[in-house]
Nucleic acid binder design. Structure first.
Lengths: 225, 225
DNA sequence: CGGTTGTTTGAACTGATTCAATCTGTGTGG
DNA sequence: CCACACAGATTGAATCAGTTCAAACAACCG
């Protein structure tokens, strides 16, 4: 799918999407769990996710890794002055469009509607970040994992009474998102399955009791808009 | 201090600061820990903190409260379409400037530099949010509290070899920020004091060993810019 | 003075981490 | 096709950090 379509689905006017599509750029395949962009270096580039999922992560002084944000298809990572305080890695093999901020910034400056669009996207990401803080700070480990699953289903555009999801995460990644260890994530999955909330078939997760899972997760999707 | 000066100190050109200062607005005194703005209602207003500290908080389905962001003097809370998914309360008695988004938006639209300024501020807050996620997800309770103290010192513009801080938080608020219970925060404070990292005199905290406290907190202030 | 808010302490309990071992699935080369 | 290597998932046991609940204490304010 071309970038334009992805952005149009995210709510951008076709004319503006075209502007971005015509911006000079290259398309890169990014392998999961491999270094892609490091923490602490300047990056004057725009990224748009075409396919797959990217993660922003930080590594603490003590070397502990925390994933602080996800970017699904149609999301972007906008340029930032100075050094970025987070690194970027792919969660699954992803197709990423890379442009230069020198090309991107003028386009946005010239189109207030475009800047409004990115402003809204950024507010959405902020809202998700807040929800993640609640998740890490105030929910128990089961709810944390369940909530991530619910959010992932919603953000990958699935729906229905008992949706299915090919789990894009390793248990280590889930641990890095929810602030736990992979060992514990494993036990949580076993619990969820034992409680009959999910079934697993290899990488696929079937949500047997979707309403109850959302309740356990205290997942209230309004924050996603 | 008039709003303009606060914003100029935050890096805004005086001419643009003047525009905002002349915008219709009222100034409100906000009492700490009292309802100010509720979660889940539409708010088409801009807030600027003139004095004091505001907090954004969310309340989980289970009624547990998490503070997801702080706004110090010079910070603002920009309007957002639709319902806000967080509430607002003051941490200490604060002076807040309230404007309408109907007055605010046109000013920003007409001045790209202004919108660039707020874009940068928003990126700073995003970076702080990411650091909070690392804090909640990956650090132990001592480091979490220590980190909050370090950040608060930095954000309130103190500096020096062994800075002092009149602690603006109750232990319950620190718990709500760091994802703990107030009981444990209390023990952490006792620990920090026993280890000789801080001394306390009523509400005042003296940082006896500032470098070591930063190390314990793995506080690396670059993320604040 | 009484009421309110915040801090401090103790004891019991629970949940998560750590470390180490084992198991499973997948892909590779022989 | 099998043998092997590797990554990820699973399990167990010991330990520890943080929560919960309950109660006492201190400071402040009208």
């Amino acid at each position: 799918m071309p970038l334009g379509d992805t952005l149009i689905k995210a709510g951008l006017a076709p004319k503006l999407a075209k502007l971005l599509e015509d911006m000079p750029h290259k398309v890169i395949q990014v392998d999961p769990r491999r270094p892609f962009r490091e923490q602490g270096v300047a990056r004057d580039e725009v990224l748009f996710v075409r396919q797959g999922i990217l993660s922003k992560f930080k590594t603490d002084g003590a070397g502990r890794r925390q994933i602080v944000a996800l970017r699904f298809a149609g999301d972007g990572i906008l340029p930032r002055e100075g050094k970025a305080d987070y690194g970027i890695q792919a969660i699954v093999r992803s197709e990423v469009l890379v442009g230069s901020s020198r090309d991107f910034d003028p386009i946005v400056d010239a189109n207030p509607d475009l800047s409004k669009f990115f402003w809204k996207l950024s507010q959405r990401h902020t809202a998700i970040g807040y929800e993640w803080l609640v998740n890490c700070g105030r929910r128990d480990s089961t709810a944390r994992v369940a909530h991530l699953l619910c959010e992932t289903v919603a953000r990958s555009g699935k729906s229905g009474d008992s949706p299915r999801l090919v789990n894009p995460f390793t248990q280590q990644q889930i641990a890095d998102i929810t602030g736990q260890t992979s060992v514990n994530v494993n036990r949580v999955f076993a619990d969820l399955e034992r409680q009959g909330l999910i079934r697993r078939d290899g990488r696929e997760i079937i949500f047997c009791d979707w309403p109850e899972l959302q309740r356990v997760a205290s997942f209230q999707p309004q924050y996603l808009n």
